[in-house]
Amino acid sequence: MRVTLDIGRFNPDAPNAKPYRQEFILEVEEYYTVLDSLIYVREYEDPTLAVRCSCRASICGSCAMRVNGHASLGCKTKLISVMDKDGRVRVDPVGNMPRVKDLVWDMKPFWDKIRAVDPFLQPEGPEPEEEYIASPESMLHLVGVMGCIMCGACVSDCTVLEVDENFLGPAALAKAYRFTGDPRDGKTKERLKELNEYSGIWDCTRCMECVQACPKGVAPMERIMALRDKTIAAGIRNTNGARHAEAVSDFVKKSGKLDELRLVPRTYGMFNPMSLNSLFAAIPVGLRALRRGKLPPIIPHKVEGKENLQAVRRIFDKVEGKK
């Protein structure tokens, strides 16, 4: 099978080093992965091509890269699944991290953020003589997060990191979840308080890029959502994010619908003087919207029919009551 690899390259040793693209036309086997074809280039076409790789079996996490613009593992991506009708595949280094050479990037920012979440178990009290006793259910859900191979694919495609490099990002937050969810850890509340700060769990925009990019099914965003839930449940609620989630829940329970008008003050915290600034900052948009007749209705919409409203409330009571 013929494939055209269009590789984003960069040689920092070259004078006036600039990124450039280079095409390789290869005859390869149908079972070849993107990584197989890059190794082929490195071994037989151009030994200067730099790419990190080792296991070829999606467990070492070395070969995250962008294939046709989206992050994945080179070794887990079959060529045949990503070639266009002309047999072309575009390969680039991951995003949101500085480039070193060709497909190799600097992972320092990645690891700095992992370090920032105190990524180690911190049990409380004396260690038991034997193992900690914990139900299989309390541990099994952590195996999915432990499946994270720290490849950086999620961080590469994170839309928040594109505009704010301070965001902890999906990998570090998923790692943090792994400890807050561990029954052996004694620092859950402290961890949640930390994660509740600026650049933490509430800055995720829920865009699902990390869920889509993760080659191991870790679904970092869903871990972030679980952290939000835990934080609210732990009584740490003095954030716009927590108030936002609570407000949406209250509105839907009350009327079956969102109430965008009231969502603003509820999120900023009506009686929170610290939030007054942000509240005022939101007003010009509101006034402009008002002039355009765009502002949400003053009397919020409801689902029609009393019985429907009751049914919605009943679901809330039943599900939330059980919690």
């Binding site: 180690f120 193992e131 139900s135 432990m146």
Partner: peptide, 19 residues
Amino acid sequence: IIELEHMGVIFNRDEDGRL
């Protein structure tokens, strides 16, 4: 094994919550 468990390895457990 116990030491690894204390470090944080999430070994599979039996119904009694033991390794």
